[in-house]
């Protein structure tokens, strides 16, 4: 079974899915992420699925679980780069992923995470100076 690598990027974790996801890989990723959020004190998780050509109900459920789980650990999750064909299929399947924030690409996803992190203020140990101010309105209208 392949494992999906989890990278640290500032105070966020970046998961870039490049393989055909097998169910066990999905479950392992969920566990890995929970551990890494706690270990690194990350404030955000970015899941880049621009290379993923199908999302079925199992994978879709993982996004919802990771979002819920990271929220419990005081981190935001943003799913980025969903392809149009995948989005159309998910809607047809009846899965609209409530509670999962989304963005067009990694850059915009990072912007959402920074804005959220700024709103909540840094964790006690954090240095706030790597936070970049965002445009008025935040560009964070999507998702929700």
């Amino acid at each position: 079974m392949e494992r999906v690598p989890v990278l640290s990027l500032g105070d966020a974790l970046l998961v870039s899915i490049q393989v055909d996801l097998q169910d066990n890989t999905v479950l392992a990723l969920q566990e890995d992420l929970a551990e890494r959020i706690v270990a690194t004190g990350a404030r955000g998780v970015l899941i880049d699925i621009s290379a993923v050509d199908i999302v079925d109900s199992f994978i879709g459920r993982m996004f919802a679980s990771i979002a819920a789980l990271s929220r419990l650990l005081d981190a935001e999750t943003v799913v980025v780069g969903m392809r149009p064909a995948v989005a159309i299929t998910l809607v047809e399947l009846g899965l609209s992923l409530p509670g999962v924030r989304t963005a067009l690409d990694v850059e915009r996803g990072m912007r959402i995470l920074r804005a959220a992190s700024e709103r909540r203020g840094p964790r006690p140990a954090d240095e706030p100076d790597d936070l970049v101010p965002v445009a008025e309105g935040g560009g964070a209208a999507a998702g929700a």
């Binding site: 050509d53 199908i54 999302v55 079925d56 199992f58 064909a85 159309i88 299929t89 047809e92």
Partner: peptide, 17 residues
């Protein structure tokens, strides 16, 4: 079409599981 491919593969994934 790409959308129809995606729909069929997704259905296959559900049924195979």
């Amino acid at each position: 079409s790409l959308v129809d491919q995606t729909k069929l593969v997704t259905a296959a994934s559900e049924l195979a599981r």
